[in-house]
């Protein structure tokens, strides 16, 4: 049976995390410190030590995952522990500080830690959801194969358009030049592709060509326009036109899938561009936090 990062080892690390959380919570509720709960009580120091060690261990995952094999368990097991113990940190950190916050390096470390964890939550969602969406979207092919097919369709469409009408050729040529797949960060995340626009401009060109014969053709659906044109032109022409529209539609569908593929891949990766730098920021803030509280003990 397939095990995800969540149910790895029969939820082994969920149990570890739960035991750690409940243990910390019970200790916090049982503990009756001098004054209010804060990081300076013995429990505060204890939870702080546990939290700091956890953070260092979680950071070590960045090193561990680069080693494809290791004596210390599978990468999936490490990731499962990373996710569950990382989530536990939210509770441990707040119990450590006694829920005290302020405008200082200590709360900055807390804020960075929360940002890292919540970006990680998105990562868990992405890893659980997007791979299957990607597989489905690719439909047993690869992105390179789809791009190659688009290139071939472009050439064929151009040749076909040339046989129909020079205006149609122009429109197809321009749409090929304007095909944009991928792009900047936002473009990738928005899954932008211009294929629909290309199809629309082709429809417009077709209808303009037909408009000279009948004025209301512009508002017709494409099939009706094709039918209309087919009536106007020879059988060979109408057949070409059908094939052209078919090709451009197919290209449009392909382009949409490629854009979606790029989008899913970007979504799978984008959180890491927050998660990793923020975790390094957290390492800095944590170092400063620990050193400062003992510097001014």
């Amino acid at each position: 049976m397939h095990e995800s990062i969540l149910d790895y080892g029969r939820y082994r690390y969920l149990w570890v995390a739960l035991i750690l959380s409940i243990g910390s919570l019970v200790a916090y509720l049982w503990h009756d410190p001098i004054g209010v709960p804060n990081g300076g009580t013995w429990l505060g120091y204890t939870l702080g030590t546990i939290g700091a060690l956890l953070i260092l261990w979680l950071l070590w995952f960045g090193v561990r995952k680069r080693r494809y094999s290791g004596a210390s368990g599978s990468a999936r097991g490490w990731l499962s522990a990373h996710v569950y113990l990382g989530s536990t940190l939210i509770l441990i950190a707040f119990l450590h500080s006694g829920f005290q916050v302020g405008w200082n390096i200590h709360t900055l470390a807390l804020a960075l830690m929360l940002l890292v964890i919540f970006s990680g939550f998105f990562g868990v969602y992405a890893y659980l959801r997007y791979p299957s969406l990607m597989t489905r979207n690719r439909a047993n092919t690869t992105r390179d194969a789809m791009l190659e097919e688009i290139r071939e369709l472009d050439q064929q469409a151009l040749a076909l358009a040339d046989k129909i009408d020079r205006n149609i050729h122009d429109v197809v040529l321009r749409s090929i030049q304007q095909t944009r797949l991928g792009g900047g960060i936002l473009a990738q995340l928005r899954a932008r592709d211009d294929s629909a626009q290309a199809l629309a401009s082709l429809r417009k060109a077709v209808s303009t060509a037909g408009a000279s014969a009948k004025a209301d053709a512009g508002s017709q659906t494409m099939v009706m326009m094709v039918d209309f044109l087919a009536n106007q032109a020879s059988d060979a022409q109408s057949d070409n036109l059908r094939r052209l529209i078919d090709m451009v539609s197919r290209k449009s569908a392909l382009a949409t899938r490629v854009a979606r593929d790029i989008q899913l891949q970007a979504l799978m990766e984008v959180w890491l561009y927050l998660h990793v730098p923020l975790s390094l920021g957290l390492l800095g803030a944590l170092t400063a936090h620990v050193l400062s509280v003992f510097f001014y003990w």
């Binding site: 992105r143 790029i262 561009y273 390492l283 800095g284 050193l291």
Partner: peptide, 28 residues
């Protein structure tokens, strides 16, 4: 056109160092 975030110029290394050093500068 870039088809991955890395191709689009997004990187982790520089941002990581920047945040690490900023946190150390501010906090230490």
């Amino acid at each position: 056109l870039p088809q991955t975030l890395a191709e689009a110029g997004l990187g982790k290394r520089r941002a990581s160092w920047t945040l690490l050093l900023l946190a150390l500068a501010f906090g230490l």
